[in-house]
Design a protein around this nucleic acid. Sequence first.
DNA 1: ATCACCATACTAGTCGGCTAGTTATTCATG
DNA 2: CATGAATAACTAGCCGACTAGTATGGTGAT
Lengths: 241, 241
Amino acid sequence: MPSQIIAPEAKTSLTGLDPEAPGPVGLRVRRIIEERIITNVMRPGERLSENDLAAQLGVSRQPVREALIRLSEAGLVQVLPQRGTVVTKISVARAESARFLRVSVECALAREAASRADAAAITRMRSLIADQRTSVREADHAAFLALDDALHRAIASATGHEDVWRTLHNVKQQMDRVRYLSMPDATPTARLLEQHEAVVGAIEARDPDEAEAVMRLHLSELLISLPRLMAAMPDYFDQDR
Amino acid sequence: MPSQIIAPEAKTSLTGLDPEAPGPVGLRVRRIIEERIITNVMRPGERLSENDLAAQLGVSRQPVREALIRLSEAGLVQVLPQRGTVVTKISVARAESARFLRVSVECALAREAASRADAAAITRMRSLIADQRTSVREADHAAFLALDDALHRAIASATGHEDVWRTLHNVKQQMDRVRYLSMPDATPTARLLEQHEAVVGAIEARDPDEAEAVMRLHLSELLISLPRLMAAMPDYFDQDR
DNA sequence: ATCACCATACTAGTCGGCTAGTTATTCATG
DNA sequence: CATGAATAACTAGCCGACTAGTATGGTGAT
């Protein structure tokens, strides 16, 4: 059974940095590379050279280096002393751990949101759901993923645990890489939207048990395409570890 | 009612780096500063200067800078562009969020460990408990905290979710700062040891419900001294946020 | 005495260059 | 042709110097 998944082959090529943009160059470089890694423009296992990146971005090695240090702390790249820097391969064990962590925490958040969320928070969630409906209709996967992030974050905020999301964000990034890899394969955004509606519905109905149950189901299905992806592009995966 | 808590007053003073020690200087500097922050040798709110640290450690600014960047990613320091670097104050909201996150995840880990942990893992836990008993008897608080870390980590490893602990570690650090602050005030290590024994006992007895319940109780009590600390040394705390 | 302003002394940000260590290539030798 | 040693071409680590931005302290005018 052949897979429709197509592995991107084009080598990464960065355009120069906008010299007018504000903020420290190091942070801007970090955001650029971060996005490229999560969206798999820079592919898992790809070698990165401080020199090349600096030249391509039109800056010195220093800010590039700082960006890579930050990304290595987030687990998106690995710096091998005196040898080189590579985009971290996707580890199945890590992805599974990420899911476990998200299930544990976000179920608790959903449960608490069902008890505590105020009207403003619920209004915000409803608004995000509406936007998601639009992006599903227009088949704008990237927009949907951004709104997905916003909704999960909104649930955390609704319980007053916005700081929790800061930690979950890094964890979610790892899973998002998998989602971007499976995007050409048509992630079932319609189904995800249904589940989001169910979660928010349960929160609005003040039903903690239901909110937790639906959230658990929702998060369980997230890495469903992982085995297929692993078979289709084994080079992108860190065999076990 | 006066508190027996005594705020450390001595200014930080670092000795030079061992020039013989191996590994990149930046990473060694990071570990040094990290430990000083967690043990409150460098106090919350204290200003750090890249120049001063570099001079004290006998290295250039570069590795110091990289260490501070890493620590800022971990939330232990804040770098204010063109203004300075400060040791992050303890935020009550963040500490509470850290506890919430740990409760959510570690209860799930304890539950799973009660189902899955193999004999070797349980032996390891028992061994750590024995060491903890020694450190309690000798009133060696620092050793107890290290063993505490090892035990919680062992529970994560026992379920095959060692990667989860990588994330929890950063979160735990924030809480450990509070624990080190309250150490002169005699943390009730004996009580913590009892709870550890109960958790491991439940895991060994293959009782998931009990394991989760005991773990939840254990983690609930962790920040119990926080209000008192906040009253005794308000300068170390970030009022709300 | 008060306030505006300016020189000064900091801060982190960035740069180019050099170094030590690793890997790939080349070339001499069997 | 195969093999191994010298070499060339990389890598990230580290340094000193300079820059742009920020706070501070003092000076002068009012």
